[in-house]
């Protein structure tokens, strides 16, 4: 559980960093991050699923959200919910990738920044991530449920506890 949660957190932090980091030869600045996001927008656009404004929204919101999600997972706060959000997000990515691959569109994956082609390898990797995330989510909910039960039985009056 702990290893899976930390692994997912690191993966999301790495994915956010890869999308936000300045391109070769550019220093860290607001302008260079904007350029990186504009480059990520081209990768999002190549999937051919969104309108121009949709591409702009997704490309500007997704990397900061991945950063937030990575930090949330790392903190362990409300783990059942952070892992559920992670599973839904990876599930969304995975279905988009499967659709694109099935349509025969040859595009840059955009998963960990530019330069990676979408293919069988990236599908296997994202499928494995989805399985890991699902396992962490189920585990987190099971642990939460057993904790809730323990709290109820500890907090209940003696007459109810006997039940």
């Amino acid at each position: 559980m702990l290893v899976g949660r930390i692994a997912l957190a690191v993966i999301f932090l790495a994915a956010a960093y890869a999308k936000l980091k300045p391109q070769t030869g550019m220093p860290w600045s607001v302008a260079s991050v904007k350029t990186s996001l504009a480059m990520f927008a081209m990768q999002v656009d190549s999937y051919r699923m969104l309108s121009v404004s949709g591409v702009r929204w997704v490309s500007h919101l997704l990397p900061p959200f991945e950063l937030f999600l990575g930090l949330w997972l790392l903190s362990g706060i409300a783990l059942p919910f952070s892992s559920l959000v992670t599973t839904l997000l990876i599930g969304g990515f995975f279905s988009v990738m499967v659709r694109t691959y099935a349509l025969g569109l040859e595009v840059s994956c955009g998963c960990f920044g530019p330069g990676e082609q979408l293919g069988a390898k990236t599908l296997i990797r994202d499928g494995s991530l989805l399985a890991l995330s699902l396992a962490v989510t189920i585990g987190a909910f099971l642990i939460q449920r057993s904790r809730d039960r323990a709290e109820i039985s500890v907090g209940a009056p003696a007459s109810q506890r006997a039940d």
């Binding site: 391109q23 070769t24 480059m39 081209m42 990768q43 656009d45 190549s46 051919r48 569109l105 040859e106 595009v107 840059s108 920044g113 530019p114 330069g115 082609q117």
Partner: peptide, 8 residues
């Protein structure tokens, strides 16, 4: 910069 592919 890293290469990109597909329609943009």
């Amino acid at each position: 910069l890293p290469a990109g592919s597909g329609f943009v």
